[in-house]
Design a protein around this nucleic acid. Structure first.
Lengths: 223, 223
DNA sequence: CATAAAAATGATTACGACTCATTTATAATG
DNA sequence: CATTATAAATGAGTCGTAATCATTTTTATG
């Protein structure tokens, strides 16, 4: 019977979490009412506080679970035997699609980061999530498919930064997933391949002439 | 005297805005108390509501002003006659430095975006701010220094997305401005230069140079 | 079945955003 | 300068909601 009891408690916690996810998503953090969450989870208001200390901790739990699920999904979305580039492509696609699908929760994430004192913390589950990228990239470096001369965190920031901004752009424009974003990002990542080093003859090239001309033009239009 | 009166009102509004900026920055949006803001602005609590309808509108005003100032600063930070690459470098440095310096307000920005109903709106002043980037990039494309085969919004998302993520990384690690982030980003942007074929990396031909010279000749004969 | 411990409840409290009747300052008029 | 009208400012009071806690209900144990 001790086991059934534990299951009941976990089911209740899950019900509260599910209700909270829905209400936060629909109404935003400020719009969400603890009473509404309790009602949907079919518990009394006070009961919610037995499982989560306050509204902010509940929010954190919702966000935490979201990123945990995302990590699982990302791992599942990646073909195990595939090339590094292929895996990066898969991860980028999965990530962009998820950001678009669950835009609401992603927005709410920034809210969970702010623990109303000061330092915008790093949420543990997001840390876990970015490891998926790191692992692929590290393998690429080990295989000499990518060069090691750029710090991995900088490459990671390009990857996730670009995808997050692109997702926002797409959502705000009511466009959905756009494969060209992924293609573009993958093309950028060509830069990190070790091969393309031999192409700078260090002579004057036409663009430098154009820059000089442009400077002259600018000065002329000022006077 | 009508003029002094208007000045007094504007000074009051400014005092409230300044107090709000400080308190939001120190305590976060939820931690900020309207009473505290009023106290620091040296007005009664009710007075704040004569200038701003509610806490959220006050927040929006704070964020709005921040990005307006940032736009001014960005424009000032860019050397007018410089090359497109040089200007991009300057803008990137200015942006990264600002994100780090005013990390708190930047974080709060996402909060102003959420008008607690549904759609994460685009704030007008941010729209204005990104135009600085767009203008430089457009000039680069016009000058054939950059190719036009990638949509400018995608390039913009790489630019700002990368810088924002990098800023967060640096702040969370208690590191300050890191020039290598800028160098790295600028190296990435090499990708946008027109076809890197060995003989003519810029994709320019002599006729374009002659056209530019001709424009200059025309201007010279006008003056 | 009795009893203790755990879990759940919802009326009550605490707190902070916002309001509004009143007061104070400023402008307009003769 | 006195008088009146208008605008601005005040802060005590209202109201909504997160969080608490004394009480009740459920579950486990011998």
């Amino acid at each position: 019977m001790a086991d059934t009891q534990r299951q009941r408690l976990e089911a209740r916690e899950e019900a509260i979490l599910a209700a909270a996810t829905a209400v936060f998503g629909e109404s935003g953090v400020d719009g969400a009412r603890m009473a509404e969450i309790a009602r949907r989870a079919d518990v009394a208001e006070g009961t919610v506080y037995l499982y989560y200390k306050n509204k902010h901790e509940l929010l954190e739990a919702v966000v935490d679970r979201f990123w945990r699920e995302l990590t699982k999904g990302a791992i599942a979305a990646i073909s195990e035997g595939a090339s590094v580039s292929q895996q990066l492509h898969e991860l980028a696609s999965y990530h962009l699609q998820s950001l678009i699908d669950d835009f609401k929760i992603v927005e709410i994430t920034s809210r969970a980061r702010m623990r109303h004192g000061e330092p915008g913390r790093q949420l543990p589950q997001i840390r876990e999530y970015v490891r998926v990228f790191d692992a692929i990239m590290q393998r690429g470096i080990d295989l000499r498919e990518f060069s090691a001369d750029t710090a991995i965190w900088q490459i990671r920031d390009v990857f996730y930064g670009t995808l997050e901004h692109s997702a926002r752009t797409l959502v705000l424009r009511d466009q959905g997933f756009d494969p060209s974003v992924i293609d573009h990002l993958m093309r950028l990542f060509e830069q990190y391949r070790p091969s393309s080093q031999a192409d700078n003859p260090s002579g004057l090239d036409a663009s430098e002439i154009m820059q000089a001309l442009s400077r002259i033009e600018t000065k002329l239009s000022q006077s």
